[in-house]
Design a binder for these strands. Structure first.
Lengths: 87, 87
DNA sequence: TCAAAATATTGTAATATATGGATAAATAGA
DNA sequence: TCTATTTATCCATATATTACAATATTTTGA
């Protein structure tokens, strides 16, 4: 059952409307947290927590640039799944 | 944001180890509830509830055969996503 | 009609997830 | 060093999900 748990963790990380929106955006272009915040219109701490869920699963990765952080999607499976959902 | 909610509902329906296992099995062969039960080794009501979550999302569909019910996967996207997870 | 078998539904307690304010940490520039 | 900016973390509360026993429903066959 272990394999199913790992897979379900990945799906769970993606299975939230805000996180799906973040991922869709990040697939188009990598993006800074403050930009996402403006785009999503939800509190900063909420954005940060959603990002940390995606990061913990290895779906996105941060790159520090001075005081800002730029995230991008690094998981190919996540990209493929988003594409399937979009069809 | 509506589209993201719809998509996240589908992912949430799939994002559980038992439901992933059910789906993997059903992709191989359609199957009766009592068979799944034997296979999963969890209470009947629990199996039934997982099936109803997948059914509500239109991922699987039942076919009544006498007193038994045979389920199969009817959502192509779900199949594709499972395949991606399996790679 | 009655009983047995298969499945669904309901009630509820335990657990997990989500939200947002408050606060902390890191960095750059004055 | 002090301040402003950006991001992360912590905490409490609200909401959602999960599990399973108990019960109901449906169907078949005696």
């Amino acid at each position: 059952m272990k394999g199913y748990e790992v897979k379900s963790e990945m799906l769970k990380a993606m299975a939230h409307p805000v996180r799906l929106k973040i991922l869709s955006g990040l697939i188009e272009n990598e993006c800074y947290v403050n930009e996402m915040q403006d785009n999503l219109n939800i509190p900063q701490s909420t954005v940060s927590q959603h990002l940390s869920i995606l990061k913990r699963q290895g779906i996105i990765a941060p790159r520090k640039e001075g005081v800002r952080t730029c995230y991008k999607v690094v998981d190919k499976k996540a990209i493929k799944m988003i594409n399937i959902l979009d069809k």
